[in-house]
Design a binder for these strands. Structure first.
Lengths: 331, 331
DNA sequence: CTGAAAGCGCTAACAT
DNA sequence: ATGTTAGCGCTTTCAG
């Protein structure tokens, strides 16, 4: 309620015009006389007037608010991905003058759609029911990081398969045969796709797919560490590792340091994300770049177009990019 | 817009009652006759009716939405602190049935207060002007992580001085004399307080404060690494390190590994946060626990009380707690 | 326990 | 270009 009881009436009175003029000033300043514009402007400032968004909305204006729904699931929430998406969405909405309603999804399907004009899902793990409901209610929607095939919904993802394929093949081209994969939670679509890409690249390069080389994590450093212990107590330890994220890869680097494995001499590593927070020091990670900020801005653009121009659902798959740096070497 | 054009009128007609009765059904079901309740209930379900939140709010006065303003400043935004605060705030609001409006603060003072009943600042670095404005507009406020002394505003912090003091003293009690401090950006109050606590503990223990042992970072791993290089090219390298965060401390651990410094034999390390994402492996960080979730829930409780009961500003300083684990040893 | 009616603050015709 | 006025969907007196 912000206690500011200043209404459009007060401003009108103060400025000596009608409330309609004030309203016009608010929505289309150039439609009123310069003189009045000045007067209203002063009144607004003196009274610290801010229009009540809900009243504007009710009267037929715009709500001007987008919702961002992000999974509470730890593997996603505590990730660079989530952070960048939140930041990217917030920054872009800020630029557009649109407000952001954040909803972290745990379990309850309690997101009230009447608060927002449109919704962006940052992944939908554990959230399929809510997605379905919003589709049913015809809320303008964009899903990030997931190709939604069972509904007609817009999405913005990258080609995870391709990224993983190229990363793995890059390793293979460096003559590695024992290439392991630290995968993420396979319920997260990108993790599954990356695993698929990894497998496909091995097959293509006539490298046997070994079950014991495929290790699932929940994207965390902790589980990475555990899987790594398993991996390196194998009779035949891998010589190369493709990781589902840079954080996971970073943990591999730490692990290697401890085990006195020289990188890339003894072990080659490829990450995924191109996480700038981790790009420092004299050993720079070779990784697959995922344009998160671009994904965020694209989503918003699409959502805006859906809301404003009623365009049909858009399906955008951006290209990942292999960034070659220091952590891959020839066997 | 969610396109649901079903209004209270439709429901009333369908149920054969007045809109007032439907409204009562919505807000206080037990106040209408059972028979009518059933009828309205059916109508609501059949029509998929959802009250328009902003209409309710316009008429009723309650917004039921809190704003969370968080600095875009990288050192804060990309931190465990920010993540936990966002998560903690979101979780608690969810429980209370209050909506969350997220605003990342970059530069423009463009936060529209008419959207929220109260706002929580997660730190205010670079944000002082906006804080001042909201105070002026008498928006109910709580600031996290900063003792605000120049205004009568509620805040929830921890005693950073004490936490730092105890951590440093703990090091001193292990006979360390060459204790360095990796500080955070000193414009962030907690960083300054931690530095002060560090200095005070040294003085108390009759250890000389050496300028070259105090290194400022922006809380990032990258800068930590740079400062570390400086620190360990000193003629007299430190034997102990008190760090402004666990992430920074973690980077120290990595660095030590590379430099073949055994921890805690060659180097003792204390962090700050008790970041659960980093608590794994066989070398567990000794650190100062900061009850972030508790800080979040406390803030919300206070904000609720301010909004509902008009209580005066509250000043809460929670206690940090030294968590002794593996990374500190006797010299 | 229920209905009629008066707004909540604002926008958008419709006049002027 | 500006003022008047009718709502937007809902809550809340006030009668009954």
């Amino acid at each position: 309620m912000s206690s500011s009881k200043v209404t459009i009436k007060d401003v009108a009175k103060r400025a000596g015009v009608s409330i309609a003029t004030v309203s016009r000033y608010l929505n289309n300043p150039s439609s009123i006389k310069k003189e009045n514009r000045t007067k209203v402007d002063e009144a607004v400032k003196e009274l610290h007037y801010h229009p009540l968004i809900f009243a504007q909305r009710l009267a037929g204006g715009k709500l001007n608010t987008f919702g961002l729904i992000i999974p509470g699931y730890e593997g996603i929430f505590y990730s660079f991905y989530a952070l960048e998406i939140i930041r990217g969405i917030a920054a872009n909405l800020d630029k557009e003058g649109i407000d952001l309603h954040l909803h972290i999804f745990w379990n309850k399907d309690n997101f009230n759609t009447s608060l927002v004009e449109g919704v962006i899902f940052a992944d939908i793990i554990g959230n399929e029911k809510q997605l379905k409901r919003l589709i049913r209610e015809q809320v303008p929607l964009v899903v990030i990081n997931r190709k939604v095939t069972d509904h007609e919904v817009s999405f913005v993802t990258i080609d995870n398969f391709k990224g993983a394929y190229e990363a793995t093949e890059f390793l293979a081209h460096h003559r590695h045969k024992k290439i392991a994969h630290l995968a993420g939670d396979l319920r997260v679509q990108c993790a599954q796709e990356r695993l698929d890409g990894y497998k496909a690249a091995l097959e293509k390069n006539k490298i046997e797919i070994r079950k014991e080389y495929i290790k699932i994590t929940n994207f965390s450093r902790r589980e990475t560490r555990e899987r790594l212990e398993e991996l390196f107590s194998l009779k035949e330890a891998p010589t190369a590792l493709f990781c589902c994220s840079d954080e996971v890869a970073q943990e591999v680097l730490n692990f290697a340091e401890e085990r006195k494995l020289s990188i890339p001499k003894d072990l080659s590593v490829v990450g995924f994300d191109d996480n700038h927070l981790l790009a420092y020091g004299n050993l720079l990670l070779t990784t697959v770049r995922q344009p998160l900020i671009k994904m965020a801005s694209t989503s918003i653009q699409i959502l805006k177009d859906i809301v404003e121009k009623k365009i049909p659902p858009q399906k955008v798959v951006l290209g990942p990019e292999l960034v070659i740096r220091d952590t891959v070497g020839f066997l």
